[in-house]
Write a protein that binds this DNA or RNA. Sequence first.
DNA 1: TGGGAAATCCCTTAAAAAGGGGATATCATT
DNA 2: AATGATATCCCCTTTTTAAGGGATTTCCCA
Lengths: 206, 206
Amino acid sequence: MSISVFIVDDHYMVIEGIRSLLQYEKSIELIGHAMSGSSCLAFLKNRLPNVILMDINLPDVSGIDLCKEVKEKYPSVFIIGLSTFNQKSFVQRMMDNGASGYVLKNASADELLESVQAVVKGKTYMSFEAARSLKSGSDNKFVVTRREKQVLELIAEGMTNIDVAKKLGISATTVDTHRRNLLFKFSAKNTAELVKLAMLNKIIGD
Amino acid sequence: MSISVFIVDDHYMVIEGIRSLLQYEKSIELIGHAMSGSSCLAFLKNRLPNVILMDINLPDVSGIDLCKEVKEKYPSVFIIGLSTFNQKSFVQRMMDNGASGYVLKNASADELLESVQAVVKGKTYMSFEAARSLKSGSDNKFVVTRREKQVLELIAEGMTNIDVAKKLGISATTVDTHRRNLLFKFSAKNTAELVKLAMLNKIIGD
DNA sequence: TGGGAAATCCCTTAAAAAGGGGATATCATT
DNA sequence: AATGATATCCCCTTTTTAAGGGATTTCCCA
């Protein structure tokens, strides 16, 4: 019995690349692709693959969130995170949300194939690089809470503590506390560095 | 005579995707690929393609800089920018540095083929989306001077005006002036927004 | 159900940035 | 030779942030 695979990625070239890498593999059947989180969920209503190769950067929702949603609705589906980024926090959060594997986009055909075959057996598969960044003792892991992330986004838009406070309907001192905690978590000397680090680590978006 | 094409992209899946999209096209011959700017330059010493498909995000240098360097050394090569980003400043700078075209990574096989065939005829090819963002009246093009860029980078590293002043061997008031000018140029309300915009537009690096 | 993290709120002081007004020297390009 | 952009320097005031010290509630998870 062949393994059915579904691809979620917003870049046509990547979809085509995966298709090309896997096409000669008889044990794998590509049953389709989606270029957004919503169209992925729409597809899954009709048909469930064994494995989903899921980009973590999607136009509508993050792959990290999508992973969680899919896993809640369809626990039997195995999800492999797919990304150009090799940062501990991403890998970590993807795995926390139920992914069975994580493969970098510069992976070879062998690696991709191996990952698919591993996860359907219930195993966990990690790109070598991804595994390394997971194990790496260094705490590249910037964990921010929902509220902190909101504050961070507004700060990066040029808002002062007072602006953010009004926007969120809370006190300015509370915003300040969040800001401090963020500075501490990122080991940032000031807001400028904080914003830089947050963007580098894709905590806040484009 | 067939068109020789060389690919520069650090993601194996994208390379494979392009290969797959172009493989049945007899008029095009893929002569190789590189996954970094340096290996691209190394390749070009031995053989020149007609067209280079060049990602703007590379591990060692930005595609924007690489484009300039390649065009200076080998003016006869046509370069097509390749990116997931559809921002005016990127497209603009890529074209300023001698690119003949700009194609988004979610382009179809037809679009990709069309772009290659257009540029070898000396034409300019733009993805519809890329062309649209170029035409969009808003001047997203942030021009900063060398000194301003230096100041910006140091600020984003968490330095205060005084720190930057010491580092660059100039007065703190001068740094402050640069900072003001930067705020004005970016229409940023404060440093946080300035850093965000600078990173979004790749004025300062990762 | 109890502990811990998250989120909320407050005070104070010093440092830094924002914003206003300027000025001068240099250097390239016209 | 003149113009304009770049880079340098200085004054001032107000606003905002940084950093120090606290506190209370809410809510999730073990």
